[in-house]
Simulated assay, not measured.
Amino acid sequence: MADTPLKLAASNGDWIAVDWGTSSLRAWYVQSDGFIQTNAKSTQGAGTLSSDAFEGVLLGLIDPWLEGDKSPLPILICGMAGSRQGWKEAAYVELPTPFSALAERLVEVPVKDPRIRPFIVPGVCQNNEFGPDVIRGEETLLLGVLDEMETGRHIFCLPGTHSKWVHTEDQRILQSRTFLTGELFALVVKHSMLRHSLDGSEGAEPTHFAKGVHDVHSGAAQFLSALFPVRAAQLLNGTDPKAAYAYLSGVTIATELKELAASGGVSPGYLVEIIGSSSLVKCYASAMRIFGIETRVHDGDVAALKGLSIIRKESGV
């Protein structure tokens, strides 16, 4: 556990903020004066749990923060705990929608432990001329960032296993688009025959990553046709597996950007707001610069905390 200096809007009592992703869990104890007292992490993401396991996993993380002789502590949860395969499904709010709808549609989770009172933030869905899409967790991060930005239209990128591209106007989400870029890359790296020629133990080395981005941007490489040469080059020329990993990472992310550019989603000179806390954020920012796209990065943990704080204040829980 570690302290953090972040201060949120004061509330009417102590509470716990939780960002429960597919592969990880993060919780913060927030005092009534808005200061973060402590925080904790776990690798027990929602993607590995059955619905009856969530309460025990959460208590295992936050039990030291709880006292038995007080009223139930409110817990606000965003992310995959509210999915159909999660703790309790929180139905999607349909786009376009104002962010205020999130606070109005919280779902309370029945629990056995009387010390906690969990609420799950709903995701948002899109099923219109822009195509079907869903967001769960990212809506809270967007709210946290937009609260401190000027009004108007903005484009957001939230890198991850499934990268999200979201267009907003003032305090409304207009449209979203999801790419399975990270999941596809992981499948190739871990489960294809290319796994023998790739080494990502040190992440994507910048020079070879940039070459992959440049090759796709210039048209010298395309995703499918670039795959097998990675293996062949290692067999015939002894290509460094770390360099091959970085190159393929660049090709994969650049393919996502090129599809967006072709559909008018982004163009040179656009400003894209990137939200996240992983090394993947740096990769996306670097790739966008090669495409002539301006970027501004926002910390994902800070965004989640601020978004949850706003939802708690508006909902009154």
Rank of each mutant, 00 (worst) to 15 (best):
Leu6Trp: 10
Lys7Ser: 09
Lys7Phe: 11
Trp15Asn: 02
Val18Phe: 05
Trp28Gln: 03
Tyr29Val: 09
Asp33Ala: 11
Asn39Gly: 14
Ala40Gln: 09
Thr43Leu: 15
Leu49Ala: 07
Ser50Ile: 11
Asp52Val: 12
Phe54Leu: 08
Glu55Pro: 05
Leu66Ala: 04
Glu67Lys: 10
Leu76Phe: 09
Ile77Arg: 01
Gly79Arg: 00
Gly79Cys: 03
Gly82Ser: 10
Gln85Arg: 11
Gly86Asp: 02
Gly86Arg: 00
Leu95Tyr: 05
Pro98Leu: 09
Phe99Lys: 01
Val107Ser: 04
Arg117Lys: 14
Val121Asn: 03
Val124Arg: 00
Cys125Ile: 13
Gly131Lys: 03
Thr140Pro: 04
Leu141Asp: 06
Val145Ile: 12
His162Ser: 05
Asp170Ile: 07
Gln175Asp: 15
Leu198Val: 01
Glu202Val: 14
Ala210Tyr: 09
Lys211Ser: 06
His214Glu: 15
Val216Asp: 00
His217Leu: 11
Gly219Ile: 09
Leu224Met: 14
Phe228Tyr: 15
Ala232Asn: 13
Leu236Phe: 15
Asn237Asp: 15
Ala243Ile: 11
Ala246Val: 08
Ser249Ala: 13
Thr252Tyr: 04
Leu257Arg: 00
Val266Arg: 01
Pro268Gly: 06
Gly269Ile: 09
Leu271His: 13
Ser277Met: 06
Ser277Thr: 11
Tyr284Cys: 02
Met288Tyr: 06
Glu294Thr: 13
Asp301Val: 05
Leu308Met: 07
Ser309Tyr: 07
Ile310Asn: 01
Arg312Asn: 04
